[in-house]
């Protein structure tokens, strides 16, 4: 087929105007960021922190605060899930992995095999895993058995009416289950402690972060989901949890998390390879110091010191 180019219009004024406008926008937006001081430090040490989505906000806050104390240290934080952080540590590509679950024995072995070093664990705080519902949901408490019946593969609860709850102004009272992607430490913690290692019912919305879980629930009246208690917002409600149907329900508070009265309390960890030195060790020491632990507390988690450790 012959290509005839007679319809080609000469590049009009309009064409150039649009292009210039686009380039202008780019230059303008580029100029604004250039005003920041560009100091070149002689020695900048970079610490790579990766892992738990539960801890990513806190780790970011630590990184920012630590920059003020030690300007020559850059702490780079990324999430992805405890599993992703530990996998990266095993490969030796990061300095610190954060995790909301314990490192498994086979992961410790793999780390030893790959890097020749033992993984070292630091407990940096505690967290209550909260069960969230929409603020218009009249439900106040739920038992562990009911939770299992909602989330487990062969669980029978699929409608709110089965839990004895009527949600106002809703046509379809099917329970919208909000869960986490399988690389999440929170996902594994929930599976182990609520589902007794059974599998999740398929069809849950698997979110990629603790914050997304709470966001989805705040937009959906019939939703129920789990996330760290630090992520609570005014648009959602944390349910009190009773260990068994009929027993008194325990609210997710800091005291109840420390005393382990709250059924879904867990510890949060840092992992490094071998005995870390220099900047990394100083950073970890600072995290475990009063200053670092205060930031943890501000983000809604429970610091280690208050338990007397």
């Amino acid at each position: 087929m012959r290509i005839v180019n007679t319809t080609q219009v000469p590049r009009s004024l309009l064409h150039y105007t649009l292009k210039v406008a686009m380039i202008g926008c780019l230059i303008f937006s580029g100029c604004q960021s250039k005003n920041e001081p560009q100091e070149k430090k002689t020695k900048v040490v970079t610490i790579q922190v990766k892992g738990s989505d539960t801890l990513v906000n806190v780790a970011q806050a630590w990184a920012e605060e630590y920059k003020k104390i030690a300007p020559s240290v850059d702490v780079e934080v990324s999430g992805g899930g405890s599993g992703v952080g530990i996998a990266a540590l095993v490969k030796g590509t990061i300095d610190i992995a954060t995790a909301s679950r314990n490192m498994r024995p086979e992961e410790v072995e793999a780390a030893k095999r790959n890097t020749g070093k033992d993984a070292k664990e630091f407990t940096l705080g505690y967290d209550g895993l909260a069960i969230y519902v929409h603020k218009d949901n009249p439900m106040k408490e739920i038992s562990m058995d009911q939770l299992a019946a909602v989330f487990t593969e062969d669980g029978t609860f699929t409608k709110w009416s089965q839990l004895g709850v009527t949600i106002p102004n809703v046509d379809d009272d099917a329970i919208v289950r909000v869960s986490r992607q399988s690389s999440s430490g929170t996902y594994e913690f929930f599976r182990e402690h609520v589902l007794n290692k059974k599998d999740f019912k398929l069809g849950s919305r698997d979110m990629n972060g603790s914050k997304e879980v709470v966001e989805l629930i705040s937009n959906t009246k019939t939703a129920i989901g789990y996330s760290g208690m630090g992520y609570a917002t005014p648009a959602v409600k944390m349910l009190h949890i009773s260990p068994k149907t009929g027993e008194p329900a325990v609210p997710p508070t800091i005291e109840n998390t420390i005393t382990q009265k709250y059924p879904l309390a867990r510890s949060l960890h840092l992992y490094t390879l071998g005995q870390s030195q220099g900047a990394v060790q100083q950073f970890i020491d600072w995290i475990l110091s009063a200053a670092g632990q205060n930031i943890l507390k501000e983000n809604g988690y429970v610091p280690v010191q208050s338990t007397g450790n």
Binding site: G81, V84, A87, A110, Q181, S182, S183
Partner: peptide, 8 residues
């Protein structure tokens, strides 16, 4: 995309 990162 969601799962390859964690699969050892």
């Amino acid at each position: 995309a969601a799962e390859l990162g964690e699969a050892s």
